[in-house]
Design a protein around this nucleic acid. Structure first.
Lengths: 204, 204
DNA sequence: AAAAAATTTTACCGTGTGGTAAAAAATACG
DNA sequence: CGTATTTTTTACCACACGGTAAAATTTTTT
């Protein structure tokens, strides 16, 4: 049972998490520096280290934080659910995540590029189970003749890949189109295009 | 007019480029260190710096190198071409690139996560033009009634996203499926699934 | 208001990292 | 072979970076 966090603690730990997310998103756990994070959080380095005792600590906290946010939108599917609605809703939620938490998605991407050393332990089995469930749901849809016979896991990867691409590669997308997901028209256009192609791709 | 590179120069510069690609792929331009690259290349740091005068130099060379490889497989499409064959071939080539040059793809991904500071200058206009051409080809296919009316640029992004995902996120894919693109069966499965979904998604 | 506790600043330290200088060793060439 | 040139090693340097100690300040509690 630990003591209740003070007002200041709550505010400053949040400041560090936010700043850390931005910096780790750009430079990864190795490339980011405490000084950068402290600067962005608007506090001195020793002050920051009063709240998190090491860079690894900040990184773990940021990773857990972003991970929880990410997992929230990976809800399980149901056999009884309608494929079209389920998939549409899933793409919707993931696109919203890419728009509203681009930095979180990038932290995640950096961690995986580094070989997912922390992530592996942090969600290895959980995510595996979640993907397994959804694979089974898709298989049941195929058996029931509701969708075309495809490899379920690759459909899942495909949706992840495309939705995350708009967050992780936003710098490239912006230089090529001049637009971001923050642009309402572009957001709708991207989401609708992807949804349309995938639905046409898997529905019968 | 510069002097011809010696035998040893050719060998060692290649060693550095290869090692640099591996290390930058994992840690990005900021997180990677010269010592790591030197170790992986099997030479001392000062020896390495005899061939490339700074870390930035190595990085630029690696980036240019991987970029050229990547651009090679982004060939332009032709209005007269058959959409089904063109798209199938494109996905094919990109999947092969992800399998054979995963590290190159990851270097690229890291650069874009960092905001593409070098890349912007290195190919800003070239890539824009290339994408523009392909957008125009897709538009002509739509007008000719050969494919469904979709937003061309998002189809292109979708193909990039999915194919690169298998290279960039290979660590995640491996923990989830136990497979890599190096596995022949998995490679074929992934490529066929993606091709099938996208073709069904856009063909009439 | 005074004491206690929490927070912030100042001044550091050891190590890691990018990079250099110059000597030693290896290679190429007449 | 001996000389010129290229390549490699050894020994460094300055600064960035992760982290600590302790004093100074602010906030909370009595």
């Amino acid at each position: 049972m630990q003591k209740k966090r003070s007002r200041i603690q709550i505010i400053n730990q949040q400041k560090v998490l936010d700043a850390g997310t931005e910096v780790f998103a750009k430079y990864g756990s190795r490339g980011a520096t405490i000084d950068q994070i402290a600067d962005m959080a608007g506090m001195s380095k020793p002050n920051l280290l009063y709240y998190f005792s090491s860079k690894k600590d900040i990184y773990r906290a940021v990773l857990e934080h972003t991970l929880n946010k990410w997992l929230l939108c990976l809800m399980e599917w149901e056999e009884a659910g309608d494929p079209k609605e389920t998939i549409t809703g899933y793409i919707d939620t993931k696109f919203e995540f890419s728009r509203d938490h681009a930095a979180a998605s990038q932290v995640f991407a950096n961690e995986i590029l580094e070989g997912a050393p922390i992530l592996k332990g942090l969600l290895g089995e959980d995510l595996k189970r979640l993907v397994g469930e959804n694979v089974r749901v898709i298989e049941s849809w195929i058996r029931a003749g509701k969708i075309k016979p495809i490899e379920p896991v690759h459909l899942i990867f495909m949706i992840w890949a495309v939705t995350q691409h708009y967050a992780d590669f936003s710098a490239q997308i912006e230089t090529l189109t001049g637009k971001t997901l923050k642009d309402e028209v572009f957001f709708r256009q991207a989401k609708d295009s992807v949804t349309q192609i995938i639905l046409n791709g898997v529905l019968k």
